[in-house]
Write a protein that binds this DNA or RNA. Structure first.
Length: 419
RNA sequence: GUAGAUGUAGCUCAACGGUGAGAGCGCUGGACUGUGGCUCCAGAGGUUGCGGGUUCGAAUCCCGUCAUCUACCCCA
């Protein structure tokens, strides 16, 4: 019999880490709530078609990274690879456009992509994200960005950078693509094999190629945000103005294009150097064409998605420097000697827990010495000792593990003595 | 899908092709009949990832396979 392991690309999240996780989740909720975003929970699986149409047939996600299967009713089902398309689907399905606009929601949950795992990349990972539907205002683009960095700031995270770009609307983007092809075609032999393919399929991708030769070519090309149509240009100026009003530092980066088809105008990423090759903590942008693509009426929208595991990765690095003290410890450990005392300890523990005291006891019938050792490992602040004498006298010996002071406490007064 | 690295005790790692595969940490017990952190002693714990091959002899060399990690593609 071989032991069963967790499937490739999945992880079990262990003791020290969940503390950071729940703090991060709490922070997301509170930051979003304050800005008027409410939680939405969409299904973990959806009809495959949602992503084919929403994310785009020719994207890597749809082409090769989806967990897709036929259910027993022969429906093609896909484990969600991202959160935006499902939210927009829900917005349309529940006719949320009929209510007050914009609709602002946030989510936290697992996403799935069939990829080769590496540092910062898992097949099941967790994202938090927000979506603001129903308004084209650049203020929302900026708000969404500020929300994301507010979460990081509230967590005490430093050293991240906001990178901003605009990829325009289909009209001006296509015009730019054509000129891009024209310029780059003259240098085909200086581009890598991948980029030669990209040149015809998705020329913008050439811009964020990591190959040095391609980078040089891409750097020589005029940035897209200098070639936007008037509407897109005005919008981009508006976003920058709003960011500056909020004192949010950003870097213009014409090479960020994002791999999902639905983005229009604003695109951005928040990166951190402590992450390895996959350096994006989060990313997002505007997707004014998505609702229509999913069969709804044209609806502007903007949002971001950010990786929880990646954030935890950087936060953990920062925490280690401090002392790594995430083990919270317990208030009390009850050490008992003898069957009768053990029963009493069991009873007392249960009672104290109801009074809000965190208590643990020995379950291995160990010696007193071992129980003390164990209590120490658990980080117990106090230990109550119950033996035959104490049982008879109806008291316990309460030891302070820090000062080593011991006192006799009547059994009934234990709760009081601990507060 | 591609490339490289790595698989030995719970963890981190040793072991020139040659005794019965070791150490540190951790775990359990004891020294200390009922008192933690330090020290000392003892004990438990291994299909050397798996399957073949070469050899008198394989953890070690060869082939295959699986897994993990890192990177590419791309993304959170």
């Amino acid at each position: 019999m071989t032991r069963i392991r967790a499937p490739r690309g999945t992880v079990d999240v262990f003791p020290e880490i969940p503390g950071i996780w729940s703090r991060l989740e709490d922070t997301v909720r509170s930051v979003c709530r304050k800005a008027g975003y409410t939680e939405i929970r969409t299904p973990i699986f959806e009809h495959t078609e949602l992503f084919q149409r929403g994310v785009g047939e020719s994207t890597d996600i749809v082409e090769k990274e989806m967990y897709t299967f036929l259910d027993k009713g022969k429906r093609s089902i896909t484990l969600r690879p991202e959160g935006t398309a499902p939210v927009v689907r829900a917005y349309l399905e529940h006719k949320m456009w009929a209510g007050p606009q914009p609709v602002k929601v946030y989510y936290i949950g697992p996403m799935f992509r069939y990829e080769r795992p590496q540092l910062g990349r898992l097949r099941q990972h967790t994202q938090f994200g927000v979506e603001a539907l129903g308004s084209p205002s650049p203020a929302l683009d900026a708000e969404v960005i500020s929300l994301l960095i507010s979460v990081y700031q509230a967590m005490g995270l430093h050293g991240f950078v906001v990178r901003l770009n605009s990829i325009g609307c289909p009209e001006c983007r296509n015009r730019y693509k054509e000129s891009l092809i024209e310029i780059l075609s003259k240098h085909v032999d200086e581009l890598c094999a991948d980029c030669n393919r990209r040149l015809t399929r998705n020329p913008l991708r050439v811009l964020d190629c990591k190959n040095e030769q391609c980078k040089a070519q891409a750097g020589a090309v005029p940035p897209i945000y200098e070639h936007l149509c008037e509407d897109c240009s005005l919008h981009f100026e508006g976003v920058k103005q709003c960011l500056e009003a909020l004192d949010i530092a950003y870097e213009l980066d014409p090479t960020i294009v994002r791999g999902l088809d639905y983005y229009t105008k604003t695109v951005f990423e928040v990166i951190h150097s402590g992450l390895g090759a996959q350096d994006a903590l989060g990313g997002g942008g505007r997707y004014d064409g998505l609702a229509e693509e999913l069969g709804g009426k044209p609806t502007p929208g903007v949002g971001f998605a950010a990786g929880i595991e990646r954030a935890v990765q950087v936060l953990q690095g920062a925490a280690d420097e401090k002392t790594g003290q995430f083990a919270s410890g317990i208030d009390l450990f009850i050490a008992a000697l003898g069957d009768e005392a053990r029963l009493e300890a069991f009873r007392q523990a249960n009672d104290l827990r109801k009074h809000g005291v965190s208590v643990d006891i020995d379950y291995l019938e160990r010696s007193l010495k071992s129980q003390m050792k164990f209590a120490d490992k658990l980080g117990a602040r106090k230990v109550a000792i119950i033996g035959e004498d104490e049982l008879k006298g109806n008291y316990v010996i309460l030891r302070d593990m820090e000062t080593r002071e011991q006192t006799r406490v009547p059994s009934g007064d234990l709760v009081k003595a601990l507060l």
